[in-house]
Design a protein around this nucleic acid. Structure first.
Lengths: 289, 289
DNA sequence: CGTTGGGTTGAGATTGGTCAAAATGGGTGG
DNA sequence: CCACCCATTTTGACCAATCTCAACCCAACG
């Protein structure tokens, strides 16, 4: 695993772009996601867009927020991949969330004086740095926005719960497959996937730190998935060649991602690959024995 | 691990107790915790107390909420131990949170139509069943309460993050030790510990499902901790005989529990065992290489 | 008492980790 | 275009942590 010697955030460039382009979905993956999943009206979206004016352009592999630091900004990923992670005293690293465009990195900064985890970039990326103060005030003023933030937090939590289950109870193969499934769904939502494939910029070491494994073992598992014809993966490009088989290998169900949205209306995924196949194979979760 | 065949909640008894005793700290561990950690005034506490009127008395090992069910109640633990867990299709179980008196089981029910995890009792216990609707309205009416709920959710999330790190990157021994440390701190907060010991009602199988291990392995690890003189543990009673050694074995730091409270004032733990010892041994988290 | 749910123990199998080297592959400076 | 460099991936041999299966024990309880 990465015995991480936190790179300093020397690659930081702050700039302020005039938020003239009001709430355009294409330029801000976060707004895109909110539009798809939350029932916010245009004025709410515009108000949020306004708060996203402060942008930070970061190089790959720099830390944006250090573990234990007072968190004075809420970061939203507009482009690139980011992660939040926890470091143990001896350098062992656990990546706790993988954040792709449209995701909020540290919503908890809104209510906690300091973050227990660090935030680091995985690729070059641009983040919106939102003032917690301003966001709290906006939420206090507009109920739909408060609800949206609470919903985002709840979905974040659901993801954490799912990863807990994976870390505790899924085999390495299941876990890797699960990650790949999840990413396809999430990236598709924000238009970062093409069909059954997507750009996969993570190194195997990063995957290992995310899944609680070793990069060597990740490598072997990936090769097995390749050999079994479930995926094609090389040169930072991933294609899921057998979606339903991969899904089965992972025990993947998209429920915990809450794509149905806040109001249950949700985005239209009628043509999405993960809606295909034997969804009737409901897990025997609720067996009454 | 427990290949769990969800027990049906046949042991359910609903009763309504008149909330005449206004906001008394001793009768409601939840209020006690709020009083210690959040800056709520008496009227806010009383309002919350009012919502906790609906009580449920449950036997040990029954499921209070089933996985995937619409969550129409927020449950607060007033007495006994509870857990939320996720079941995989083949019955593997991961306990995702351990809930002791004062804890909220499923705050996310406030904002998510259905819970991805189940809730089950570990001991006989009494829960308050709060109407999400009513709680949302109360929060909308009183800002301090909204802040408190958001804070509780954030702390819950921080705990999940810490468990993620443990599941992914701590050894079985570290993880077990970490659990025992955490429990001492949390139980002390709500007056359920005596000195360095507490009643520990979990079976080793439950501990295993919580830590992502096997009951057999938990057994061996516990024995090793016993042999090394770090703990005394038998007959459902646990005493931590060497707090600082156990803490060291776990790599435990109480930060993520956020005992300093919402406003940073916090409960008074000046005499608490976990504040002793070389806290100067700050982990080299932020090494700059 | 007999049953039952935990706790303990042992032997052996597996998964995943460690260490170290070799292969690959995309940059970069010349 | 080439030589080289670095990060990353891949491989192999071996090891360690943890799991599996199967007893066995024991205290609680009906």
């Amino acid at each position: 695993m990465a015995h991480h010697q936190s790179l300093q955030g020397t690659g930081l460039v702050a700039l302020r772009s005039p938020p003239d382009q009001h709430a355009s979905a294409t330029d801000n993956a976060f707004l895109l996601k909110l539009r798809l999943l939350c029932g916010l009206d245009e004025s709410d979206l515009a108000a949020i867009d306004l708060l996203c004016g402060e942008r930070r352009q970061l190089r790959a592999r720099v830390t944006a927020v250090q573990q234990g630091r007072p968190s004075d900004r809420v970061f939203v990923v507009l482009d690139g991949w980011v992660c939040s992670y926890r470091l143990l005293a001896d350098g062992r690293r656990q990546i706790t969330r993988l954040l792709v465009p449209g995701d909020v990195c540290n919503l908890e900064a809104l209510h906690l004086p300091q973050s227990g985890s660090a935030i680091g970039t995985l690729t070059p990326c641009t983040l919106a740095a939102v003032s917690p103060q301003a966001l709290r005030e906006l939420a206090a003023a507009r109920r739909p926005i408060a609800d949206t933030l609470a919903w985002l937090a709840a979905v974040d939590l659901a993801g954490l719960v799912e990863r807990n289950a994976s870390l505790g109870r899924r085999s390495a193969r299941e876990h890797v497959a699960h990650l790949l499934c999840e990413l396809l769904v999430r990236l598709t939502l924000v238009g970062r996937a093409q069909g059954n494939g997507y750009a996969m910029p993570l190194t195997q070491e990063e995957i290992a730190d995310l899944l609680g494994l070793t990069s060597v073992h990740v490598n072997r598992v990936v090769q097995a998935l390749r050999r079994d014809g479930l995926i094609e993966y090389g040169g930072k490009e991933l294609v899921i060649t057998q979606w339903s088989a991969l899904k089965a290998a992972a025990g993947f169900r998209a429920d915990y991602l809450h794509l149905e949205g806040m109001d249950g209306s949700g985005a239209d995924f009628s043509a999405a690959p993960w809606t295909f196949g034997a969804e009737g194979s409901r897990p025997a979760d609720f067996a009454t024995g």
